[in-house]
Simulated scan of single mutants.
Amino acid sequence: MKKVVNILKYVLLLAVSVFLMWYALRSINFAAVQKELGQVNYFWIGATLLISVAGYLSRAVRWRMQFKPLGYHPSLGQTYHALMVGYLANIVLPRAGEVIRCTFLKRSANVPVNTSLGTVITERVLDLLLLVSCIGLTLLLEFDRLHGFFEEIFSSKYKGLEANLQTLYILMAVGLAGALIMGWYIFKNIKRLRQNSLFKKISHFMRGIWQGIASVRKMDQKGAFVFHTLFIWFTYFLTSYLAFFAMPGTSHLTWQAGMAILVVGGIGMSAPVQGGIGVYHILVRTALLLYAIPLDTGMAYALLVHTTQAILVVTMGVISLLVSLANNKKTAAALT
Rank of each mutant, 00 (worst) to 15 (best):
S320G: 04
A243Q: 02
L140P: 03
L57T: 14
K9Y: 00
E162F: 03
L140H: 13
G275K: 08
L161D: 00
K218P: 00
Q39D: 09
E36H: 14
I7Y: 13
M172R: 05
L312Y: 04
R107Y: 13
S270W: 00
M299T: 15
K159L: 13
Q195Y: 07
S27T: 13
A332D: 14
I202M: 06
R192T: 00
S17M: 07
G276M: 10
L146C: 03
T336M: 12
I267L: 13
W184E: 10
A292G: 05
V40K: 06
G249A: 15
L70Y: 10
L253A: 01
I170L: 15
D127V: 01
P248Q: 09
H73L: 13
V4W: 12
K159M: 11
P69S: 05
G86D: 08
I202C: 04
I293E: 02
A326W: 05
G266S: 07
Q39Y: 07
V85I: 13
W233H: 02
F187P: 00
V174F: 10
F234A: 15
Y241C: 04
I282R: 05
G77C: 06
Y56F: 12
S133I: 06
F234V: 11
V305Q: 09
F143E: 08
L193W: 02
F199A: 10
R217F: 13
G77W: 10
S17V: 07
S75W: 00
R145Y: 14
F187N: 10
T235Y: 01
L242C: 03
K2L: 09
L105D: 09
Y72M: 07
Y80T: 11
V53F: 15
A109I: 07
S108E: 12
V226N: 07
G223P: 08
L25E: 03
L295Y: 10
K3M: 09
S215R: 05
L129I: 11
K222I: 09
T229Q: 02
L171V: 15
L129R: 01
L180S: 11
I135G: 04
G148E: 08
A24T: 01
G265H: 02
F30D: 05
N196F: 00
K188S: 11
L12F: 08
V318H: 03
Q195D: 11
L198R: 13
P69V: 05
T122G: 14
D127P: 06
N6R: 11
Q66D: 05
T115R: 14
L57A: 15
